[in-house]
Simulated assay, not measured.
Amino acid sequence: MSMTDAELAAQLATAAGRILLQVRDCGLITGQALGKAGDQTANQFLCHALREQRPDDGLLSEEEKDNSERLSHSRVWIIDPVDGTREYGEARADWAVHVGLAIEGVASIGAVALPGMDVVLRSDQPQPLPPGAPIPRMLVSRSRPAPEALAVAELLGAELLPMGSAGAKAMAVVRGDAEIYLHTGGQYEWDSCAPVAVAAAHGLHVSRADGSPLVYNQADTYMPDLLICRPDWAERVLAAMRSLPV
């Protein structure tokens, strides 16, 4: 019997994570060169496997030249072979592998591997959300926290948690390590498709920073902002965003 889309996503994310750890652990490449080698190796594996397993679907990868042919497909796999290349190169744990499937523009199925933690989170195996903290913990970029996110954190009295990749931040909310991930610094579809599918399956709120839906497989793959949070914080975060000066 053939694998379901969700099983395929999880298998591919897991295998790509193992490949990336092997590339890094061989110790022959370091720094930026390691990030590039990891990206290329994992991308080649994922793209070949998806074209083999789902030849009739579209494909969008951060590491492949975009092909507008995907726009004619209702099902498009959207992948990020290494989300958090710098963290991967530094042998940190806060990087991820994203394998997502958008159906009719909606992030519907996904798997996010966190190889540094030996964890894979899947849209088809949601776990109950752990209890939230009374003072919200809000995830921000390690290197360049967005001014809007900092302003919202101040309005909500939130504790800031700097972290690496977008996938690692989104999965921290899924895992109960934080309540809010608000990003306003600009991303691309591959940064959030798989994490959004997993987060939504776990009952989290997912939207643009103004509350509008996230739409995938667009001609322009740029996505300006993103909110993933526990449902009980969604309206407060969106109200805080609306109160900021334009």
Rank of each mutant, 00 (worst) to 15 (best):
A96T: 13
D210Q: 13
E235W: 00
L156Q: 04
A102V: 03
A166Q: 13
R242K: 14
A166P: 02
E87N: 14
Y188N: 07
L114I: 03
V97G: 07
P195Y: 12
Y188M: 08
I79M: 02
A209D: 13
P128V: 13
T221Q: 15
A166D: 07
R144C: 04
D220H: 11
L161G: 01
E87Y: 06
D118F: 04
G211A: 07
G164S: 10
A102Q: 01
R75N: 12
A107F: 08
I228P: 02
M3P: 00
D94I: 01
A168F: 14
D25L: 04
A158G: 09
Q187M: 15
S74Q: 14
V106M: 04
N67C: 10
Q127P: 00
E63W: 06
P136H: 11
G211V: 05
Y181I: 01
A209R: 12
P128W: 15
D191M: 01
V215F: 10
A172W: 06
S165D: 13
A15C: 02
G89D: 05
P136C: 10
L21T: 14
F45V: 01
L28P: 00
A15K: 13
L129Q: 15
R24N: 02
N43R: 00
A107E: 08
T14W: 11
L129Y: 07
M1G: 14
L226H: 12
E90Q: 15
S61I: 02
V198L: 11
M3T: 01
I78Y: 12
I79S: 05
Y222W: 14
A133W: 06
A201G: 05
H202K: 09
L226K: 07
L204Y: 07
R230L: 05
H48A: 15
Q32I: 15
L114G: 05
M241F: 09
V206G: 10
D232P: 00
S61H: 04
P224A: 15
G186W: 12
P130A: 08
A42D: 05
V174T: 05
P134T: 10
R51P: 03
D56L: 09
M138G: 01
A194V: 05
Q22V: 06
V140A: 01
L34S: 02
R242M: 08
V173Y: 01
L182P: 03
Q218N: 13
R24H: 11
S61M: 03
I78V: 14
A168I: 04
L226V: 09
H183T: 01
L28G: 00
Q44M: 11
P145G: 02
P131G: 09
T30Y: 10
V174W: 13
R86N: 13
R142F: 11
L226G: 07
R236F: 07
V198E: 11
P55L: 03
G211S: 06
P145K: 03
D225S: 09
K65A: 08
E104N: 15
A37C: 06
H202Q: 04
G27N: 12
L59T: 03
L50T: 05
Q53F: 12
S108D: 04
A15W: 10
V112N: 11
V196H: 08
A133G: 00
Y216C: 08
E189Q: 15
Q125I: 00
T184F: 12
